[in-house]
Amino acid sequence: MNPTRGCGTTNRANGVKGRQTVIELENVAYSYGGGELLSDLSIKLAPGSFHFLTGPSGAGKSTFLKLCYAALLPTAGQVRLFGADARTMDRTAVALLRQRVGVVHQDCQFLDHLPLIENVALPLTVAGRNVAHEEANLKDLLQWVGLTNRASALPPELSGGERQRAALARAVIMAPDVVLADEPTGNIDWEMSQRLLQLLIELNRMGKTIMVATHDLSLIRAAKTQVQARVLRIKNRRLQLAGADL
Protein backbone atom coordinates (compact mmCIF):
# COMPACT_ATOMS: atom_id res chain seq x y z
CA MET A 1 0.00 0.00 0.00
CA ASN A 2 1.20 3.44 -0.87
CA PRO A 3 1.19 5.37 2.38
CA THR A 4 0.62 8.67 0.59
CA ARG A 5 -2.77 7.39 -0.61
CA GLY A 6 -3.64 5.42 2.47
CA CYS A 7 -5.46 6.17 5.62
CA GLY A 8 -5.22 5.79 9.35
CA THR A 9 -7.56 3.52 11.24
CA THR A 10 -8.61 2.78 14.78
CA ASN A 11 -6.49 3.46 17.80
CA ARG A 12 -4.32 5.72 15.64
CA ALA A 13 -2.23 2.72 14.70
CA ASN A 14 -2.22 3.56 11.04
CA GLY A 15 -2.53 7.33 11.12
CA VAL A 16 -1.55 9.34 8.08
CA LYS A 17 1.04 11.95 8.86
CA GLY A 18 1.93 15.00 6.85
CA ARG A 19 -1.01 14.71 4.47
CA GLN A 20 -4.07 16.92 4.30
CA THR A 21 -7.05 14.73 5.02
CA VAL A 22 -10.42 15.10 3.33
CA ILE A 23 -12.38 13.30 6.03
CA GLU A 24 -11.22 12.74 9.58
CA LEU A 25 -12.99 11.00 12.43
CA GLU A 26 -11.51 11.25 15.89
CA ASN A 27 -12.77 9.12 18.77
CA VAL A 28 -16.19 9.13 17.22
CA ALA A 29 -19.11 7.33 18.79
CA TYR A 30 -22.66 7.14 17.59
CA SER A 31 -25.58 6.01 19.71
CA TYR A 32 -29.06 5.26 18.51
CA GLY A 33 -32.13 4.23 20.46
CA GLY A 34 -30.22 4.04 23.71
CA GLY A 35 -27.51 1.75 22.42
CA GLU A 36 -24.08 2.57 21.07
CA LEU A 37 -23.76 1.56 17.42
CA LEU A 38 -20.25 2.82 16.78
CA SER A 39 -17.58 3.40 19.37
CA ASP A 40 -14.22 5.17 19.48
CA LEU A 41 -13.63 5.37 15.74
CA SER A 42 -10.64 7.24 14.48
CA ILE A 43 -9.68 7.43 10.85
CA LYS A 44 -8.17 9.87 8.37
CA LEU A 45 -8.96 9.61 4.67
CA ALA A 46 -6.26 11.07 2.48
CA PRO A 47 -7.01 12.55 -0.96
CA GLY A 48 -6.94 9.92 -3.72
CA SER A 49 -7.20 6.95 -1.38
CA PHE A 50 -9.45 3.94 -1.96
CA HIS A 51 -11.16 2.19 0.93
CA PHE A 52 -13.54 -0.63 1.39
CA LEU A 53 -15.66 -0.77 4.50
CA THR A 54 -16.99 -4.17 5.37
CA GLY A 55 -18.80 -5.87 8.18
CA PRO A 56 -21.99 -7.84 8.77
CA SER A 57 -25.42 -6.37 8.17
CA GLY A 58 -26.37 -3.96 10.94
CA ALA A 59 -22.74 -3.41 11.93
CA GLY A 60 -23.04 0.30 11.21
CA LYS A 61 -21.51 0.67 7.75
CA SER A 62 -24.25 3.00 6.49
CA THR A 63 -24.11 4.97 9.72
CA PHE A 64 -20.37 5.34 9.30
CA LEU A 65 -20.84 6.69 5.77
CA LYS A 66 -23.57 9.08 6.93
CA LEU A 67 -21.15 10.47 9.47
CA CYS A 68 -18.75 11.06 6.59
CA TYR A 69 -21.17 13.33 4.71
CA ALA A 70 -22.79 14.97 7.74
CA ALA A 71 -26.14 13.25 7.33
CA LEU A 72 -25.60 12.25 10.96
CA LEU A 73 -23.62 13.93 13.71
CA PRO A 74 -21.57 11.90 16.18
CA THR A 75 -22.80 11.58 19.74
CA ALA A 76 -19.16 11.77 20.89
CA GLY A 77 -15.87 12.64 19.28
CA GLN A 78 -15.23 14.84 16.29
CA VAL A 79 -15.83 14.54 12.57
CA ARG A 80 -13.86 16.94 10.37
CA LEU A 81 -14.89 17.26 6.73
CA PHE A 82 -12.36 19.11 4.59
CA GLY A 83 -11.02 20.59 7.79
CA ALA A 84 -14.39 21.83 9.12
CA ASP A 85 -15.95 20.42 12.27
CA ALA A 86 -19.25 18.80 11.25
CA ARG A 87 -20.89 20.01 14.46
CA THR A 88 -20.27 23.64 13.63
CA MET A 89 -21.53 23.39 10.06
CA ASP A 90 -24.90 25.02 9.46
CA ARG A 91 -27.39 23.51 7.04
CA THR A 92 -26.19 25.60 4.13
CA ALA A 93 -22.61 24.51 4.77
CA VAL A 94 -23.75 20.88 4.84
CA ALA A 95 -25.57 21.41 1.53
CA LEU A 96 -22.40 22.87 0.00
CA LEU A 97 -20.38 19.98 1.42
CA ARG A 98 -22.58 17.57 -0.55
CA GLN A 99 -21.22 19.15 -3.73
CA ARG A 100 -17.76 17.92 -2.71
CA VAL A 101 -18.90 14.50 -1.54
CA GLY A 102 -20.77 12.34 -4.03
CA VAL A 103 -22.93 9.63 -2.49
CA VAL A 104 -24.20 6.43 -4.10
CA HIS A 105 -26.92 4.70 -2.12
CA GLN A 106 -27.91 1.08 -2.38
CA ASP A 107 -31.47 2.17 -3.23
CA CYS A 108 -30.13 4.97 -5.44
CA GLN A 109 -32.73 7.55 -4.34
CA PHE A 110 -33.98 9.12 -7.55
CA LEU A 111 -36.84 11.47 -8.27
CA ASP A 112 -39.15 9.06 -10.06
CA HIS A 113 -41.00 11.76 -11.99
CA LEU A 114 -37.83 12.99 -13.73
CA PRO A 115 -36.08 11.19 -16.59
CA LEU A 116 -32.66 9.71 -15.94
CA ILE A 117 -30.75 12.60 -17.52
CA GLU A 118 -32.49 15.14 -15.27
CA ASN A 119 -31.82 12.98 -12.24
CA VAL A 120 -28.15 12.80 -13.13
CA ALA A 121 -28.14 16.59 -13.63
CA LEU A 122 -29.93 17.22 -10.33
CA PRO A 123 -26.80 18.33 -8.41
CA LEU A 124 -26.21 20.93 -11.14
CA THR A 125 -29.83 22.07 -10.97
CA VAL A 126 -29.86 22.56 -7.21
CA ALA A 127 -26.50 24.33 -7.39
CA GLY A 128 -28.12 26.86 -9.72
CA ARG A 129 -25.95 25.88 -12.70
CA ASN A 130 -27.40 26.13 -16.19
CA VAL A 131 -27.91 22.51 -17.18
CA ALA A 132 -28.18 23.42 -20.87
CA HIS A 133 -24.59 24.68 -20.75
CA GLU A 134 -23.45 21.35 -19.29
CA GLU A 135 -25.16 19.21 -21.89
CA ALA A 136 -21.90 17.99 -23.45
CA ASN A 137 -20.52 16.99 -20.06
CA LEU A 138 -23.76 15.24 -19.22
CA LYS A 139 -23.66 13.23 -22.44
CA ASP A 140 -20.02 12.31 -21.81
CA LEU A 141 -20.93 11.17 -18.33
CA LEU A 142 -23.85 9.05 -19.54
CA GLN A 143 -21.59 7.53 -22.15
CA TRP A 144 -18.98 6.79 -19.47
CA VAL A 145 -21.52 4.84 -17.41
CA GLY A 146 -23.04 3.29 -20.56
CA LEU A 147 -26.47 4.86 -20.28
CA THR A 148 -26.60 7.13 -23.32
CA ASN A 149 -29.56 5.28 -24.79
CA ARG A 150 -31.46 5.39 -21.49
CA ALA A 151 -31.27 9.15 -20.97
CA SER A 152 -34.99 9.74 -21.27
CA ALA A 153 -36.09 6.70 -19.26
CA LEU A 154 -37.77 7.22 -15.91
CA PRO A 155 -36.03 5.62 -12.90
CA PRO A 156 -38.71 2.93 -12.38
CA GLU A 157 -38.02 1.78 -15.94
CA LEU A 158 -34.31 1.14 -15.23
CA SER A 159 -32.73 -2.14 -14.18
CA GLY A 160 -30.79 -2.43 -10.90
CA GLY A 161 -27.44 -2.10 -12.66
CA GLU A 162 -28.60 0.88 -14.69
CA ARG A 163 -29.85 2.60 -11.57
CA GLN A 164 -26.54 2.06 -9.79
CA ARG A 165 -24.55 3.42 -12.73
CA ALA A 166 -26.92 6.39 -12.97
CA ALA A 167 -26.47 7.02 -9.24
CA LEU A 168 -22.71 6.95 -9.74
CA ALA A 169 -22.99 9.41 -12.63
CA ARG A 170 -25.06 11.72 -10.44
CA ALA A 171 -22.58 11.37 -7.60
CA VAL A 172 -19.66 12.53 -9.74
CA ILE A 173 -21.28 15.19 -11.92
CA MET A 174 -20.15 17.98 -9.60
CA ALA A 175 -16.57 16.65 -9.77
CA PRO A 176 -16.50 15.86 -6.05
CA ASP A 177 -13.33 15.17 -4.14
CA VAL A 178 -14.82 12.12 -2.42
CA VAL A 179 -17.24 9.41 -3.56
CA LEU A 180 -18.99 7.35 -0.89
CA ALA A 181 -20.85 4.26 -2.07
CA ASP A 182 -23.16 2.33 0.23
CA GLU A 183 -23.60 -1.29 -0.93
CA PRO A 184 -23.55 -0.20 -4.59
CA THR A 185 -23.56 -3.79 -5.81
CA GLY A 186 -26.19 -5.07 -3.41
CA ASN A 187 -28.93 -5.46 -6.01
CA ILE A 188 -27.00 -6.28 -9.15
CA ASP A 189 -25.38 -9.35 -10.69
CA TRP A 190 -21.66 -10.15 -10.68
CA GLU A 191 -21.00 -8.88 -14.18
CA MET A 192 -22.63 -5.54 -13.43
CA SER A 193 -20.78 -5.38 -10.10
CA GLN A 194 -17.51 -5.69 -11.96
CA ARG A 195 -18.52 -2.94 -14.36
CA LEU A 196 -19.41 -0.62 -11.48
CA LEU A 197 -16.15 -1.48 -9.74
CA GLN A 198 -14.23 -0.50 -12.88
CA LEU A 199 -15.96 2.88 -12.87
CA LEU A 200 -15.01 3.41 -9.22
CA ILE A 201 -11.41 2.42 -9.94
CA GLU A 202 -11.33 4.86 -12.86
CA LEU A 203 -12.56 7.62 -10.58
CA ASN A 204 -9.87 6.76 -8.06
CA ARG A 205 -7.25 6.94 -10.80
CA MET A 206 -8.54 10.44 -11.53
CA GLY A 207 -7.60 11.32 -7.96
CA LYS A 208 -10.92 10.93 -6.21
CA THR A 209 -11.10 9.54 -2.71
CA ILE A 210 -13.34 6.48 -2.76
CA MET A 211 -14.99 4.64 0.08
CA VAL A 212 -17.22 1.66 -0.67
CA ALA A 213 -19.27 0.00 2.04
CA THR A 214 -19.96 -3.57 1.06
CA HIS A 215 -20.33 -7.04 2.50
CA ASP A 216 -19.37 -8.53 -0.88
CA LEU A 217 -15.87 -9.93 -0.19
CA SER A 218 -15.45 -11.18 -3.75
CA LEU A 219 -15.81 -7.61 -4.96
CA ILE A 220 -13.09 -6.53 -2.56
CA ARG A 221 -10.79 -9.34 -3.70
CA ALA A 222 -11.38 -8.38 -7.33
CA ALA A 223 -10.62 -4.76 -6.59
CA LYS A 224 -7.42 -5.47 -4.70
CA THR A 225 -5.92 -6.99 -7.81
CA GLN A 226 -6.33 -3.69 -9.63
CA VAL A 227 -6.05 -0.89 -7.10
CA GLN A 228 -4.31 -0.15 -3.83
CA ALA A 229 -7.28 -0.35 -1.57
CA ARG A 230 -7.39 -0.44 2.17
CA VAL A 231 -10.05 -2.63 3.72
CA LEU A 232 -11.66 -1.61 6.97
CA ARG A 233 -14.01 -3.71 8.98
CA ILE A 234 -16.58 -2.70 11.60
CA LYS A 235 -16.61 -5.29 14.31
CA ASN A 236 -18.03 -4.98 17.80
CA ARG A 237 -18.82 -1.32 17.15
CA ARG A 238 -15.17 -0.53 16.36
CA LEU A 239 -13.24 0.00 13.19
CA GLN A 240 -10.45 -2.44 12.37
CA LEU A 241 -8.01 -2.82 9.56
CA ALA A 242 -8.95 -6.07 7.83
CA GLY A 243 -6.20 -8.60 7.52
CA ALA A 244 -5.14 -11.27 5.12
CA ASP A 245 -8.41 -13.15 5.57
CA LEU A 246 -9.63 -11.04 2.67
Binding site: L111, V126, G128
Partner: peptide
Protein backbone atom coordinates in the same frame (compact mmCIF):
# COMPACT_ATOMS: atom_id res chain seq x y z
CA UNK B 1 -40.27 13.88 2.23
CA UNK B 2 -38.50 11.36 -0.01
CA UNK B 3 -38.04 14.07 -2.66
CA UNK B 4 -36.67 16.41 0.00
CA UNK B 5 -34.26 13.67 1.12
CA UNK B 6 -32.97 13.23 -2.43
CA UNK B 7 -32.61 16.98 -2.93
CA UNK B 8 -30.64 17.29 0.29
CA UNK B 9 -28.46 14.34 -0.70
CA UNK B 10 -27.42 16.09 -3.91
CA UNK B 11 -26.63 19.37 -2.18
CA UNK B 12 -29.86 21.39 -2.22
CA UNK B 13 -30.05 24.00 0.50
CA UNK B 14 -33.22 24.33 2.56
CA UNK B 15 -33.75 27.74 0.94
CA UNK B 16 -33.74 26.09 -2.49
Amino acid sequence: SQVIGVLRLVGATDAY
